[in-house]
Design a protein around this nucleic acid. Structure first.
Lengths: 208, 208
DNA sequence: CCCATAACGGGACTCCAGTTTCGTTAATTG
DNA sequence: CAATTAACGAAACTGGAGTCCCGTTATGGG
């Protein structure tokens, strides 16, 4: 008698198992982008992935659980940031990247759907938080460089500045129907840079 | 022969019909706050509202449609803004209001759920956009006053400044697990004020 | 106050998302 | 290159979300 068996896919992760995972995550992303989280049927995803629906139910069980796995997968593929030499330049590069992603006909709806899925289950929320944590950590160094250069006051919360760039873009995506253009990206970067220079993101504000 | 009949609840909107709507919207809000949009059963809501499930299905039909109605209802109850005499003071008052709402154990999850529901259906999205449009319009005058006072450059997009206050709070609510405290609210207000003063929210940037 | 009928509500019914069963395929190990 | 068994997949099954039917309640107009 064994311990009851680990999660499916952990003992023989190679070959077919990996192919099935890739196909299912691909199909899940496509379907999420097209239809959103609601009324999402795992059997549909299985059909699109050319995989038995039993397999999908056994390995992931629920839509939110599948989204969590998709987020784990996406978190691993982080694209390197570009460096321009100035805070505003770096933040604009970041803002443009976010804007292009959210304005993309596939990626935009996909991100909306993943955010929606994260509101439904703790595990999915955790995966989403991890995903954004990685993105923020990837870009935070450009703010540190600005601090070192003297562009931004010492004690500035670098992560908070990076989040400040994305925030208005996501807010607009979710709460308005407006198109996200490059002007919006530039405005987000300029606002974050101006606020950072003015010391709005200093840690331990108002404790003295 | 008639035209086939209008939507239920439009011909005799008084008395019982209004009571039923109020009870159902109340129950819908409670359930959304507790469980989120996923796996939400209209029969559950009907039971909690002490209303026949047939009635709920007939008048609203789907969860997203019910959320849309809830948003219409909430949009009508706009609380008046306070005036402090300075841009930063007004923006802080706004930020604190948003922060308290999102940090509230009932309202926070409710807003998350409504945002999630809006990603699933156009009609619900429209209702959400309308809701935020009203909130933004309610607070935008305080930015106009700051322009008149000379605190902020002429040509500043007043709506964009108000959105800039809320954006980081919503972004944090959705993409991190962190608690929204008053410090976060103040930081959001200060950043928006600093960026506005620096001219980051001027309309028609980069067209000349 | 009374009538016509809008709107509600209980209960039976349907249909499909999710589960269970069991046989098949192929990843790993020596 | 077998042997072992993890993982897959087709098909039958089940439970409950959503629909339908029809009798009941009570609103709004005259």
């Amino acid at each position: 008698m064994g311990s009851g068996g680990a999660e499916p896919g952990t003992v023989r992760p190679g070959g077919r198992t990996a192919r099935v995972r890739a196909a299912v995550l691909r199909a899940a992303g496509d379907t999420l982008a097209e239809r959103g989280v609601a009324h999402l049927d795992l059997a549909d995803i299985a059909r699109r992935a050319d995989v038995g629906k039993t397999t999908v139910y056994r390995r992931w069980g629920t839509v939110t659980s599948l989204v969590a796995d998709l987020l784990m997968d996406m978190a691993e593929q982080s694209l390197p940031r570009t460096e321009t030499g100035s805070l505003l330049g770096d933040l604009k590069a970041n803002a443009r990247l976010v804007q292009r992603t959210l304005a993309d006909p596939r990626q935009g709806p996909l991100f909306k759907a993943m955010i929606a899925a994260a509101t439904c289950e703790a595990k999915t929320a955790e995966a989403l938080h991890h995903f954004y944590d990685i993105r923020v950590k990837e870009w935070a160094p450009c703010v540190q460089q600005a601090i070192d250069r003297g562009e931004v006051p010492e004690g500035t919360d670098t992560h908070e500045v990076i989040r400040a760039v994305s925030a208005p873009l996501y807010y607009r995506l979710l709460t308005t129907g407006d198109h996200l253009d490059e002007a919006a990206a530039d405005r987000a970067a300029e606002a974050a840079a101006a606020a950072a220079r003015a010391g709005a993101y200093l840690r331990n504000k108002g404790l003295g």
